[in-house]
Simulated assay, not measured.
Amino acid sequence: MATSITVLDRLKMELNNKDYYSDDAYTIYLSENNLTATDTYAAATMKKQLFQTVYDVLDSLANNLDLFRSIETEFTTTGQAYQYLQKRLDDIEKKILAIPDSTGTTESQFNFMYHN
């Protein structure tokens, strides 16, 4: 039995159901990555864009650690919160790069330094 879920609800799941921002703000982040909050989530075609949205939300929190720490209470220092957030961003970036784009190729973290 397949269960359908909206794109907004799937985004919230990836963010561990933390209320960093309002649904309206999440909807804006989703639309910036060509996703519609009320659409039914389809992993096969939306996964990369969803992870990019998660990355964007967490990246914005890296610029507002006070907001992040007010919701994530297990961090006693700003440094701990920042380190956790940076690790999470790195992990998400790796996931994004591992997902094939519409041409079926994956991106690489490595670029040619020299080209003839």
Rank of each mutant, 00 (worst) to 15 (best):
R69S: 13
K94Q: 12
A81H: 06
N63E: 08
S108D: 11
D23W: 10
V57H: 01
N33Y: 02
T78S: 10
L85Y: 02
A43W: 04
T38H: 05
D91Y: 04
N111P: 00
K48E: 12
T6H: 07
L50F: 08
L30P: 06
N63R: 01
Q83W: 04
D23S: 13
F110W: 08
K94T: 14
D9S: 15
L15V: 06
T40Q: 06
E93W: 03
D66K: 06
R10D: 06
Y55K: 05
H115F: 11
V7C: 03
Y114K: 14
S4E: 14
D19W: 01
Y82R: 15
L50C: 12
Q86W: 01
N16L: 12
R88P: 00
L97A: 07
L15D: 10
Y114N: 14
T36C: 01
M13S: 14
E74H: 10
M13N: 13
N116W: 06
D23Y: 10
L58Y: 08
N34Y: 13
T45F: 03
T78P: 00
T105C: 07
D24M: 13
N34V: 05
Y26S: 03
L30C: 04
Q109G: 12
D90H: 06
Y26E: 03
Y20A: 03
S70L: 07
E14K: 09
Y55R: 03
Y84Q: 08
L50H: 11
